[in-house]
Design a protein around this nucleic acid. Sequence first.
DNA 1: AAACCAAAGTTGACACTGTCAAGTTAAGAT
DNA 2: ATCTTAACTTGACAGTGTCAACTTTGGTTT
Lengths: 204, 204
Amino acid sequence: MNKLNEKSTYHHGDLRETLLLVATEMLQENGIKEVSLRKLASRVGVSRTAPYHHFKDKNALLCGMAEKGFEQLHQINKCGYEDEELSIREHFYRFIHDYIQFAHNNPDLYELMFGRTIWKDKSSTQELRDSAYPCFQFQVAMTQEWQKKGLFNVDDNALRVSQVLWGTVHGIAKLFIDGIYTDNSKIDEICDYAVSMFLANSKK
Amino acid sequence: MNKLNEKSTYHHGDLRETLLLVATEMLQENGIKEVSLRKLASRVGVSRTAPYHHFKDKNALLCGMAEKGFEQLHQINKCGYEDEELSIREHFYRFIHDYIQFAHNNPDLYELMFGRTIWKDKSSTQELRDSAYPCFQFQVAMTQEWQKKGLFNVDDNALRVSQVLWGTVHGIAKLFIDGIYTDNSKIDEICDYAVSMFLANSKK
DNA sequence: AAACCAAAGTTGACACTGTCAAGTTAAGAT
DNA sequence: ATCTTAACTTGACAGTGTCAACTTTGGTTT
């Protein structure tokens, strides 16, 4: 377990974390298609099947990577929300911009986090859900807070507002990172329009 | 070339179409992960590499499948739009509902049509683009028409309105079919809310 | 009618993938 | 000093996409 003494190569010491790290590197460099357990293992300098002592299968590894992604995104949301310099309206702006920016900066990770591969067929691990749900819930809580403060109609169901809101942000993000909206220079402009649309009849 | 005389088995006669058809069946049955060229070929009753005479590679086959999907979706949009019984507002309702319904009915096909696999890295075929772009453009044209008729603010950039609108619809659809929004019974409710949100300060 | 060509379909081969079973190493507890 | 057990390795298997070389066939040209 000595990271300093590098002599003992048989036991890696911190393989699980290293695998997650390097796999995420590979994901960002060449996309999900190039993330194979064998290439990963060889790049980390370990045998083909070593990862199986830390992850049940490839799906579990992918879930682990997505998990870290949700922690990042959650952190970004928190930071924006806790910035006391901003008005409510600015908080809302910032949420949308930061969210889409995150997706744009980490397209393959974002794809992984929200993609079918991980979520359908109940193939998500418990750990993934434990990291993703609080992130989702934080977004609902923020929306609720904004609603209370007059940004949205208080009569509307808060969950629905938040679902439509997240849908919009998620949809725009995906259309960009999947290469269907191709003009990246227009991201901010589209974000701005989305914001103004949501706040069209807000009193604040 | 005789479909009736089934004796000559060497030449299939209509392999390209059959491959697209059966591949799409496989997609709907067991998801993209179970669509392999070899299983497809064997199911069609042809050798492993026969498909290569009709599609450059697997990607081209997938593009071909998506192509058909866009034709379907385009048709659905047209049908809804050309229904003369409906008011403008109802047309708008119908577009959103039909769109999300299509995605919900064909989750894997929808995933394929709009996913990274096909669009990123310029890996889309010319034929796919020729079938997808008119479909996208029709949606922009509809939005423009609605804008003219007073559903949206005429001062806003029509392309932006349409991009945000499509983003919302696409995002909600994806969150459902990817298994992140899990309560399918709430689809209509969310659609309704999205519609009312977009038309909050419409004059019509 | 004979010869020919190009399209359509075949088999063999290769490198790559995820994953299992069985064996090896070594770190830490008794 | 011994033992347990987690971490790691090698060998093996079935499955994948795709290439090259070969065979069959239908239609066109002489």
